[in-house]
Design a protein around this nucleic acid. Structure first.
Length: 426
RNA sequence: GUGGAUGUAGCUCAGGUUGGCAGAGCACUUGAUUGUGGUUCAAGAUGUCGCGGGUUCAAAUCCCGUCAUCCACCCCA
């Protein structure tokens, strides 16, 4: 029996990434910034499982979207204990709503603002800013009122999160799809209006007319854009109430100085959106230029079997933030390196390292019995600023040589003095 | 799912057209009168040439297949 050769290669799953310290430092820093911003806006943080019943997404996101048609990763146990259909979550909103309904949060409080982070999974073909396991920062504001006053707050929160994450170059695109009735009317109008152009639309749009007519509106194909532009429907699909609400939203955003662009060609792919939709794009990204998006979804909760409660939310793509964030995040550096000669006085060095760590000072040492020179090189390479040398002279004097690597000065100190020095330098 | 490019040392890449000893720079290890880093100099170690098959006396190089990565489409945040 020979080993099967296809298992020889050690390789991460396609579209997944390993975070090393340098990337992870930035990831954690940005997550903390986003969390602090969410708390400023009165959010509670929740952390929901990666595993979720597939039907939650099918019912919420829509059956004809790529996300549920082609991209869901399924979780399979070696020994099945039930026939439950389990997915690795492809997005957060549907799951948050499942959590909201399951725990009857509407009975505890009329209004919830929930912040969440975590990995999402979609079986896409990887490219820049698009992975199969990626990370979202999301907020859902559920209940309260269905008016745009909440929408403005949520858009402002998304913008402020990106500001705090060091994303400078960004544009908020804004549109309203109208209420459910408006959306249905728009879809029907589009189908009718596009019928004469069957021969001119791109193949993708021909398909979209049947599956998801709204998506024809944001097609990138030149010809399709011209056709849509010529139809010049803009906000004509909005009923009086929805148009009024949309105008109000724009006014509030202006009053709190959130810059936005009205984009009548902006639609969102997921079924659950109604009224306000927005997208935050950055020209610093490649062709995947959306760094975040969201909108209002007034029918989702009742569609999933919950009470008739309106909601609005958004999600930001962590990997895309990382691509364009201007933040420079400091890497963790050890405070002091304990050096000696080969393995002379190794027990004393171990004891010193232990003492330093107990005092809250990060410390490390050489474990390979290397020369003093090699140990200095190792410390210098890690940007360690201070070295403690323990050798014959120090043991005789009952002290420790404390060297400042930046100005190359050193002096004999005892261990308590070293702690005092290091803490004063911090 | 579609199209294009790429895959050689830890990293960045030469070599490939025209088959003939596996290379460079950076990084790494060691040393330069036996207790001190950065600069310099010297020496050294490091390979499944993505993987599998085919052609050939001989394949990193030519052919077929496959996997992966990148870019764009599509989709989405």
């Amino acid at each position: 029996m020979s080993e099967p050769k296809q298992f020889k290669k050690c390789q991460a799953i396609r579209g997944t990434t390993d975070f090393a310290q340098d990337v992870l430092s930035k990831f954690n820093f940005i997550t903390d910034k986003a969390r602090q911003t969410a708390l400023l806006y009165g959010c509670e943080e929740i952390n929901l499982p990666v595993l979720e019943d597939t039907s939650v997404f099918v019912r919420a996101v829509g059956e004809v979207t790529d996300i549920v048609e082609k991209q869901i990763f399924k979780a399979v146990r070696a020994v099945a204990e039930s026939k439950q259909d389990i997915a690795l979550r492809p997005e957060g909103t549907a799951q948050v709503i499942r959590y909201y309904i399951e725990n009857a949060l509407n009975k505890k409080k009329p209004f919830h603002k929930l912040f969440y982070t975590g990995p999402m999974f979609r079986g896409e073909r990887p490219q820049k800013g698009r992975l199969r396991q990626f990370h979202h920062l999301g907020v859902e504001a559920i209940g309260g009122t269905d008016t745009v006053l909440i929408d403005a707050d949520i858009i402002a929160l998304a913008v402020n999160m990106l500001d705090a994450s060091g994303v400078k170059n960004k544009t908020v695109k804004l549109n309203s799809l109208g209420c459910h009735a408006d959306k249905v009317r728009l879809t029907e109008n589009l189908k009718t209006a596009l019928a004469p152009y069957k021969d001119e639309l791109c193949p993708d749009c021909l398909r979209r007319v049947l599956t998801n007519p709204l998506r024809v509106i944001d097609c990138k194909e030149k010809k399709c854009r011209e056709i849509i532009k010529a139809l010049d429907f803009k906000d004509s699909h909005l009923c009086v109430k929805c148009k009024d609400e949309f105008d109000k939203l724009k006014n509030v955003l202006r009053s709190i100085e959130i810059a936005f662009e009205y984009d009548p060609f902006l639609v969102r792919g997921l079924d659950y959106y109604t009224n306000t939709v927005f997208e935050i794009v950055s020209s610093d990204l490649g062709s995947q230029d959306a760094v975040g998006a969201g909108g209002r979804y007034n029918n989702l909760i009742s569609n999933l079997g919950g009470p008739n409660i309106p909601a609005v939310g958004f999600a930001l793509g962590m990997e895309r933030i990382m691509l364009i964030s201007k933040l420079k995040v400091a890497q963790p550096v050890i405070d002091i390196y304990v050096a000696g000669h080969n393995d002379n006085y190794i027990n004393e060095r171990y004891a010193l390292v232990k003492f330093l760590r107990n005092e809250g000072v990060s410390a490390d040492m050489d474990y390979c019995s290397r020369s003093l020179k090699a140990q200095f090189r190792a410390a210098q390479k890690q940007d360690i600023k201070y070295i403690a040398v323990l050798g014959d002279d120090e043991i005789k004097a009952g002290k420790i040589m404390f060297r400042d690597m930046m100005n190359s000065k050193q002096e004999m100190l005892d261990k308590v003095e070293i702690i005092k020095r290091l803490i004063s330098f911090k």
